[in-house]
Simulated assay, not measured.
Amino acid sequence: MDQRFIEAFKSSAASVLGSMAFTQATAGVHYVKQDEQSTGDVSAIVGLTGQWEGSLSVSFAEACICGVVGNMFGEEIPAINDEVEDAVGELTNIISGDARRRIAELGVIIEGAVPLVVAGKGHRVRHMTSAPIWAIPFETPVGGFVIELCLTPAAL
């Protein structure tokens, strides 16, 4: 995995949460994840194609996403509901798009599909390639979330 891709997703997530949800997101140390178990209570998964192929997921703990969406809507959100799930998909789509724009500036074109949202404690996230899954943990004042990135160069 090109480490510049990981940096693009770190920067994009911090930027998107800051501008859309008025929430500071600080990236931790990224690592290779060993299983399919979600780290959060609601996730969005995006298929990626182009010069690199694979998938991306963003998984939020319930307290985190309720706080983030509450900041976006200007009201308290007590639990994950349909609006929260929609927001997870939109946030993931925007983070993905911004990161892919940053990666395009490096000369690499990656396209993204429409996010699929999965909710529920203990759900699994299956990535689309057998490449290593890079996990990027984030902390916010309202809780944590994790971006998972699984990419491999496309076969020509």
Rank of each mutant, 00 (worst) to 15 (best):
L48K: 03
G143I: 00
R102F: 14
L149S: 06
K121E: 15
E90H: 02
C66M: 07
S55N: 00
A21N: 01
E53H: 01
A61V: 04
E62W: 08
K10A: 09
A155I: 13
G122C: 07
N81R: 05
V125A: 13
A119M: 06
S59A: 14
I45S: 04
E75V: 05
D35K: 01
Y31D: 00
Q37C: 02
V29M: 14
S130D: 14
G89Y: 08
E53F: 04
A119H: 07
N93P: 08
A87R: 00
L56P: 06
A87W: 00
V146N: 10
D98H: 15
F60D: 09
L48Q: 01
L91V: 10
L56E: 08
S11V: 15
I77V: 14
G89Q: 00
A63Q: 13
L48F: 00
A155Q: 15
L48G: 00
L151F: 02
A119S: 10
E75D: 02
G50D: 12
I136M: 04
A79P: 08
F9T: 05
I133K: 02
G107E: 05
I103G: 00
N81E: 04
R124C: 14
L106P: 09
M128K: 02
S11I: 14
V42Y: 05
Q3F: 15
G28R: 03
Q34R: 13
T26H: 01
A155V: 15
G120T: 07
F9P: 04
I80Q: 11
P153N: 09
A131R: 02
L56A: 03
A155G: 14
W52M: 13
A79V: 11
R101N: 12
E85N: 09
V58N: 12
S38H: 03
E139M: 07
P141K: 06
E36P: 09
A131E: 05
E83N: 10
M72Y: 04
D2A: 02
P141S: 09
G18L: 08
I109D: 15
D98W: 10
A154P: 09
E111H: 11
G70Q: 04
Q3N: 11
L151I: 02
T23F: 04
V69T: 11
D82T: 12
G40L: 05
V42C: 06
K10L: 10
E111G: 12
D98N: 15
A113I: 05
V32Y: 13
